[in-house]
């Protein structure tokens, strides 16, 4: 028991930023270069392991598979072959419920790149931007619009309403398609495809989004995650996920530290003292709020009901002191 308690204390007091940095780096190398080591985690990963990174990818993003399957002609999609869609979704769901939205906060290569850009901004001393409450509320709907289009457009292709040029519409605008292959020295996604009007518009839009991604991530923490349809999809399926973010409102002093450190600017985490399940659709489960909370047990991450990382006063002081010494 004593040993378990000491382990728990060590985990709760960990230098969280450093731990997260190394974990993100590990997953980045795994998903971007794992293919070179023969690693293949399948085509149903709940994270942006881009399929356009043909050589090095250690697994593939489920959204690409989903869009390809949704494009099937309806006679095929709604026949026995449609069981393939269900089985692929099942594998995706099994991956997802293990880490819930922790896939966003710890594993996603696109998220990791954004965090690196944020570090770069911090080094330059340029301050970051935040959304106003009104902006936050209406911008937060964009990811659901993108999620809906991601389903509807491929279905329409399968139904013969749209041309195949519009295939994988989200992949065409996703910054992961243009940026992740760069890490394998593949620059082919940086070109505009003029072979048809549709391809020209979609690839042009993709590169505009890429430009927006870079400048947005520079001034706004985790800029793209706010609009990510994968995040919206995760939230819709998160009811039975094993990794959960919980709050004990009775211990919360409304200091607001959790809101201040939140990359996604989620006010609810600070304001709500009644809900036990505090994860929202914008949350990326980076657990920075837990690391920044000074009240013991007010915020905690649990896995299958077992607390694995909880806020402690000792951890808070240790991390703040580290932050202070880093700032000198």
């Amino acid at each position: 028991m004593l040993r378990l308690e000491s382990i728990r204390t060590a985990v709760n007091n960990v230098q969280f930023n450093r731990f997260r940095f190394w974990l993100q780096l590990f997953f980045f190398v795994l998903l971007v270069y794992g293919g070179y080591l023969g690693i293949e985690l399948g085509k149903s990963l709940p994270t942006f392991a881009c399929g356009y990174n043909k050589e090095g990818r250690g697994g593939m993003c489920y959204l690409m598979t989903l869009q390809h399957q949704m494009e099937w002609p309806w006679q095929k999609l709604f026949s026995v072959a449609g069981l393939t869609v269900l089985s692929t979704f099942g594998i995706f769901y099994l991956w997802f419920i293990a880490l819930n939205k922790g896939w966003c906060g710890f594993v996603c290569p696109v998220g990791t790149i954004q965090d690196w850009i944020t570090s770069l901004r911090r080094m330059t001393g340029i301050r970051y931007s935040r959304y106003s409450w009104g902006q936050f509320q209406w911008l937060a709907q964009i990811k659901y619009v993108l999620l809906a289009l991601m389903f509807l457009i491929p279905l329409a292709i399968g139904g013969g309403w749209f041309q195949k040029d519009l295939k994988s519409p989200f992949c065409m605008i996703c910054p992961g398609r243009t940026i992740i292959p760069l890490f394998s020295a593949d620059f082919s996604q940086l070109s505009i495809d003029f072979s048809s009007k549709t391809n020209m518009i979609m690839t042009g839009l993709g590169l505009a989004v890429t430009g927006l991604f870079f400048i947005g991530s520079f001034v706004k923490k985790r800029f793209f995650c706010f609009y990510c349809p994968m995040g919206a999809f995760h939230y819709l399926l998160s009811k039975i996920a094993l990794l959960r973010l919980k709050k004990d409102g009775s211990k919360c002093t409304r200091c607001g530290d959790c809101f201040r450190v939140c990359d996604q600017e989620i006010k609810v985490i600070a304001d709500d003292v009644t809900q036990k399940e505090i994860m929202t659709d914008d949350c990326i489960m980076c657990l920075k709020c837990v690391a920044a909370c000074p009240e013991p047990g007010a915020l905690k991450a649990t896995f299958a009901g077992i607390p694995i990382f909880a806020s402690t006063e000792e951890g808070f002081i240790k991390r703040m002191n580290k932050g202070c010494s880093d700032g000198k």
Binding site: F187, D193, F194, G204
Partner: peptide, 26 residues
């Protein structure tokens, strides 16, 4: 050939334009 219908100049131009325009605007 892809070189008949793909342009890196346009692609990088659009991305750089958005970056510069966005950066200056901000």
């Amino acid at each position: 050939s892809p070189y008949d219908y793909r342009s890196y100049a346009w692609g990088l131009g659009i991305a750089l334009f958005v970056i510069v325009f966005g950066g200056v605007s901000i």
